[in-house]
Design a protein around this nucleic acid. Sequence first.
DNA 1: GCCGTTTTGTTCTCCCGTTCACAAACTCCT
DNA 2: AGGAGTTTGTGAACGGGAGAACAAAACGGC
Lengths: 224, 224
Amino acid sequence: MTARTPDSARDIPEATVARLPVYLRALIGLAEDGTTTCSSEELAASAGVNSAKLRKDLSYLGSYGTRGVGYDVEYLRYQIAREIGVTQDRRVVIVGIGNLGHALANYSGFRSRGFRVVALLDADPARQAEVVAGLDVRSFDDLEAIVAEHDVSIGVIATPAVAAQDVADRMVAAGITSILNFAPTVLAVPDGVDVRKVDLSIELQILAYHEQRKSVAPGTEVVS
Amino acid sequence: MTARTPDSARDIPEATVARLPVYLRALIGLAEDGTTTCSSEELAASAGVNSAKLRKDLSYLGSYGTRGVGYDVEYLRYQIAREIGVTQDRRVVIVGIGNLGHALANYSGFRSRGFRVVALLDADPARQAEVVAGLDVRSFDDLEAIVAEHDVSIGVIATPAVAAQDVADRMVAAGITSILNFAPTVLAVPDGVDVRKVDLSIELQILAYHEQRKSVAPGTEVVS
DNA sequence: GCCGTTTTGTTCTCCCGTTCACAAACTCCT
DNA sequence: AGGAGTTTGTGAACGGGAGAACAAAACGGC
Ligand SMILES: NC(=O)c1ccc[n+]([C@@H]2O[C@H](COP(=O)([O-])OP(=O)(O)OC[C@H]3O[C@@H](n4cnc5c(N)ncnc54)[C@H](O)[C@@H]3O)[C@@H](O)[C@H]2O)c1
Ligand SMILES: NC(=O)c1ccc[n+]([C@@H]2O[C@H](COP(=O)([O-])OP(=O)(O)OC[C@H]3O[C@@H](n4cnc5c(N)ncnc54)[C@H](O)[C@@H]3O)[C@@H](O)[C@H]2O)c1
């Protein structure tokens, strides 16, 4: 607990890890507004969380604030970016350049947050004639070569669900250890490989559940 | 606890609500394979969760299984769909028909899961000449009229971050009480309005954090 | 140089969610 | 009909995260 571990924090709770990017975004916003110092209260408001939670989260990284003053925006921003590991660019490949793959490839927000899309892959030869966001769409068979050439950190799966497991297997075999999956399937991967899924239909269904509750039970859970 | 609440479950934990759509998807897959009955073990495997967790989750809905046998796939599927509230279609509007909005509008998976996109809105007059996925892109000013005409349940925000709060305010004023937000901003909404956010950059940053950990501390957290 | 004020870092408590483990309940076989 | 074998539903233990509350530390005024 009180033992000093100066160069790196040992174990940051998963819930905290998920919020660090939100704090980072809030700090970037504050910096753009010309703010150089902020209190935990202000930053928490920008990030939409409780200030006690914010302070506890930041305490896992170290003591980067000054009591009675607050946090230096630029310094804290760098510390969080370093902790997350986005101080230097990470290479990303996107597989499946359909509706969603096009949108992802054209999204500038990845680049500005430290992620560089180095290749777009698709199994359909018709797609491979295309140039999207300045990149050739290449054959899925080039995966291994591309991963070996660039130092690819993260694979993004935007193929139909039936192909997702195959694509994941190939990614893992090629040495990718982090996958972001948009296909509505559960992926099986070996230990040591991280998978995060984004399932928009699930999000809508969760909203639908609460929506139904609002209309069915108007007197049970009403707030103010 | 043992009091019978036959027609509707009272309070389903949020974590369970988030998994019900996964179970629903798994059941649909099993039904397509011709499976009529399944055990909690099988269903849990399909959904990628622990079987005890699955049983506890399902127990919040009622006792729909048969001990010694398992669950009837079709029956359970209907019960979950009813609980979530997707037995009849829900109307959705998408605001911001750029890269992402196009992909969402063209996605067939929403329709097949009980969500009907009734309108696409954009503030840019140049966009409003377009027809996307068989729908005219209409002016954002038509929002109130569209919400009133159709019975819109859910609003999807796919505009740039700077516009998101304004769009959310207009949606709330028009009577929408569930919002799915793709813009990287914290939205402020009144009580009674649900917001869920999907932030792809945050997902990548979480992966980046774990990726960094793998390479920095190769002997600390290795599994098997 | 000292005191009051501000704000952080941390401790403590509570609550939600996960998992184990087992009794109850059902089927099938003899 | 009865017993063996399954599988559900749930009580109980456990772990992690959220939030309140407070002590420690820095600043500023005098
Ligand atoms: N479009 C959306 O808004 C949206 C929303 C939610 C979920 N999704 C999911 O995202 C995925 C992609 O959706 P989409 O609308 O872009 O689909 P799409 O059909 O437009 O695109 C899929 C692409 O993947 C390619 N592909 C197929 N098999 C492949 C393989 N084995 N290897 C490499 N490429 C392969 C296809 O050639 C195609 O270009 C789907 O799983 C879908 O369910 C999409
Ligand atoms: N494209 C992606 O893959 C991706 C990934 C992650 C996050 N996002 C986020 O999703 C949002 C949309 O991304 P995009 O790439 O589609 O952007 P985009 O610029 O291509 O599209 C935005 C659209 O919103 C419209 N718009 C702007 N202000 C509006 C307003 N006030 N009311 C109605 N419409 C308005 C614009 O006319 C434009 O058509 C952004 O916030 C982005 O950060 C996108």
